[in-house]
């Protein structure tokens, strides 16, 4: 198995990952892929929906689409950072641009990945994102 021998393997299932995408089918697919990778996942159809969520503080990692009506992925990340609450964030986009990537990483985004999502790439992104995250990982997250 993929996670066998990995230091955090026993904690993976405890990680709760928020997925924000306005496109329903893309969101469902991403949520399921993240679950298939062994994490717990919750989908939100907009940045606002995530920000309103009571579970916001339970999230260990955030995977968000860049282009969305209302608040986009970048703004969501900035908004969270400005409120002093940083979740390791992964940006996904159907239109990756090389000049955006360094800007994204410079702003503290953990990963900037292209759609369609590759399972292995997404996994390593999530793992490195939560690994580098400040503070204890998996703070009080609930198993789903």
């Amino acid at each position: 198995m993929i996670f066998r021998g990995f230091i955090r393997s026993q904690m993976v299932g405890d990680l709760l990952i928020a997925i924000v995408d306005d496109d329903e089918s893309a969101r469902d697919a991403t949520v399921d892929l993240v679950k298939a990778l062994g994490f717990a996942a919750a989908g939100f159809d907009s940045a606002a929906a995530l920000l309103r969520s009571e579970d916001l503080h339970k999230m260990d990692c955030l995977i968000t689409d860049v282009r969305m009506p209302g608040m986009g992925g970048f703004e969501l990340h900035r908004d969270l950072a400005a409120s002093g609450f940083t979740i390791p964030t992964i940006l996904m986009t159907a239109y990756p641009e090389d000049r955006i990537r360094p800007q994204a990483l410079g702003e503290g985004i953990k990963c900037y990945i292209a759609k369609p999502l590759e399972a292995d790439e997404l996994l390593s992104c999530i793992l490195s994102a939560v690994d580098h995250a400040e503070g204890p990982v998996g703070k009080g997250s609930q198993r789903r």
Binding site: A29, D32, K115, P116, L117, E118, A119
Partner: peptide
């Protein structure tokens, strides 16, 4: 939808 298909198939 193509991207969703790839992601769903991967899952």
């Amino acid at each position: 939808p193509l991207a969703s298909m790839v992601t769903n198939a991967s899952a």
